[in-house]
Computed example of a mutant assay.
Amino acid sequence: MSDGIQWLVGLENWMSSVVFARGISAQELALRMGADPDGATEPITDAQAWALDMEAYRPDGDGDGVVRVGESAGWSFAVEYGDSTGGDLLAEISRDEVEAIRYVPIQEHPPATVEYARDGVALCSFGLAEENQRYGAEPDLLLPDLIAGQVLGTDGKTLLAPRDPDGDDYEDFKVTYRRTLGVIERRFGLSLPPACLKEGLLPAYAVRGTPNMRT
């Protein structure tokens, strides 16, 4: 569990969203994100996934989206590539008593976001460095954790971690992001080793459009 997920702050490509699910297999996660059950590639690396023939936009159809899936620390996970919208189905992914979390690592502004769903309901979500603005059916579900993790003051509104969005250096944002990801990591027992995500060989599925899945 030493790897955790705080290192995800350093993901270089903002389109590499990560979806976690507890209670289903990695293949089932891919299916709930829109994959063909018989559409898996041979296991490939992160670099090979980005090298797949994907179109970001088509005037007469969907852009291409791909996921690579695996399992770590009792959770299945899917890494999204290209124009994947599979993670937008988080409530659907979480049906039948499944838990699902999505981390979208957009940098600076708009901020990275964390979303949590369980049993078919989108329970809570918020932007990192904007944790005082929370949404969902139970927006304050993680509030005690955010307060205990010194992300928010006891009023649930005061942001405690330093940040300087008007400066040239966004290291302050990274401090906030890591602090919040640490809260999520501890609350849900998430751990995703960097090597598993990057160099690890994982099957890939098309979840949107018509990408060429030949590696």
Rank of each mutant, 00 (worst) to 15 (best):
S25L: 02
F77H: 08
G82T: 07
D60A: 12
G74S: 03
M54E: 00
G70C: 01
E28D: 14
A26P: 02
I44C: 10
S76F: 10
Q27M: 07
W75K: 06
T85G: 12
Y57G: 05
A78H: 04
A26Y: 07
A49F: 09
S76L: 11
G34Y: 08
A26F: 10
T41V: 13
E28G: 01
Y57V: 09
G23F: 03
I24D: 01
R32Y: 00
D36H: 05
V79I: 14
A40F: 09
A21C: 00
A49P: 10
A51Y: 13
V69H: 02
T45L: 10
Q48I: 09
V66D: 10
A21Q: 02
A49I: 09
A40P: 06
G82K: 05
D62E: 15
G39T: 03
G63Y: 00
D60Q: 13
V67F: 05
D62H: 14
G70T: 03
D64Q: 06
G86W: 03
E42Q: 15
L89G: 04
W75F: 08
A21G: 05
L29E: 04
R32P: 03
A91M: 06
A78I: 06
Y81I: 13
F77M: 04
E71K: 04
D88N: 10
I44P: 02
G23I: 09
W75T: 03
F20W: 06
E80C: 11
M54S: 10
R32T: 01
S84G: 15
I24A: 07
D36Q: 04
E28T: 08
P59Y: 03
G65S: 03
E80I: 04
S25G: 08
W75C: 05
D38N: 15
E42D: 14
L31A: 12
F77I: 02
A73W: 06
V66Q: 08
A73G: 06
T45G: 08
D53S: 15
W50I: 09
F20M: 03
F20S: 06
G82Y: 05
G61S: 08
V19I: 13
P43N: 02
Q27E: 14
R58A: 06
G34N: 01
V79R: 12
D83P: 01
G63L: 05
E42P: 03
A51W: 12
G65E: 01
A30K: 00
I44V: 12
V67S: 02
V19L: 09
T45D: 13
D46N: 15
L31K: 10
A78E: 02
G70K: 04
F20I: 04
D60P: 00
A56E: 11
D62T: 07
L89I: 01
E71P: 02
V19H: 04
